[in-house]
């Protein structure tokens, strides 16, 4: 199977008539995703590409289509509102692609969405794809192939790179999830690892992290404590220089945490295979799944 989305996912697109929204809606439909509706305020009653009904509000769209997932392509200043509108309308899975959402907006969106019982993916993420079944977001479908490996990543194009190298090596994927690189986002590494552990078709997991924060370290501990399936990881930013940091608050709250070296060490100590280069993920997977 897969995690979060599959053949039965009924998706609406918020911002379906915008430049990015319309382009990627076509791509998602072409891939086989069930796009059951779209939302653009003021364009309710129209149809996208003569097929997909457009609504003024998410609430109307959900009532008419029984959508259970949404993907958001609205400009950054409206993204917080779009996420809250979707959660309030009862959509269970909210994926926000928009880049540039103010982080203070996310401090309000996150508790709101959680209280409504919805799962948020993103913002500033490429979305996710369950190869051969459904894609939500912008991950190019042709670099993926169905198979037994789950993938979770903080990055966009680096995810494509690793998936591409896996597919070239004939290692397919159950679901590839891009959680996004913003400081505050919804679904995190641990949520995905937990879902992959429970998914009967996933045999191994790839985790791709970056410098900054402590999410990867916590995820590594989760792997040791809660997972039986093998996990391999890569961290980008091994050569990144320390920034010209202003203020002390960052250092006070996290100490020296967040370097690539520290994250790779956490991987090693907790039994997560460490790839030095993206291509090494392939060999590590082959060994782990033998």
């Amino acid at each position: 199977m897969s995690i979060f989305i599959d053949k039965s996912t009924r998706l609406i697109v918020q911002g379906i008539t915008g430049r990015d929204g319309s382009f990627h809606t076509k791509q998602m439909i072409e891939y086989g995703t069930q796009v059951v509706g779209g939302v653009t305020p003021g364009k309710g009653g129209q149809k996208f590409e003569d097929k997909v009904p457009i609504f003024n509000t998410v609430a109307e769209a959900v009532r008419a289509t029984q959508a259970n997932a949404t993907v958001i392509y609205v400009p950054p200043m409206f993204a917080a509102d779009a996420m809250m509108e979707a959660a309030d309308a009862g959509v269970r899975f909210v994926v926000c692609i928009t880049e540039g959402v103010p982080v203070l907006d996310m401090t309000r969106v996150n508790p709101f969405v959680t209280e409504k019982g919805a799962r948020l993916l993103g913002p500033n993420c490429p979305g996710l794809i369950s190869p051969g079944q459904s894609k939500v977001g912008i991950i190019p479908g042709r670099i993926c192939t169905p198979g037994p490996v789950g993938l979770v990543s903080r990055s966009g194009t680096l995810t494509y790179e690793v998936v591409y190298q896996m597919t070239r090596a004939k290692i397919g994927q159950t679901t590839c999830v891009g959680i996004g690189g913003d400081p505050i986002n919804g679904t995190n590494f641990i949520d995905c690892l937990d879902a992959f552990e429970k998914d009967p078709n996933t045999e191994a997991v790839v985790m791709i992290g970056e410098i900054g924060g402590t999410d990867e370290q916590e995820a590594a501990r989760f792997v040791r404590e809660k997972m039986k399936k093998p996990v391999v990881g890569f961290i980008a930013g091994q050569t990144a220089p320390p920034g010209r940091r202003m203020g002390h608050a960052g250092a006070i709250i996290s100490g020296s945490a967040g370097t690539a070296a520290e994250k790779m060490q956490a991987f090693e100590e907790n039994g997560v295979g460490v790839a030095k280069r993206p291509i090494d993920v392939v060999d590590l997977l082959k060994r782990a799944m033998r």
Partner: peptide, 17 residues
């Protein structure tokens, strides 16, 4: 010159590697 921050960092890492 790279597209995407993650791939850009991974490229720099590979240059060093």
């Amino acid at each position: 010159v790279v597209n995407g921050a993650g791939l850009a960092m991974a490229t720099m890492d590979l240059v060093k590697y």
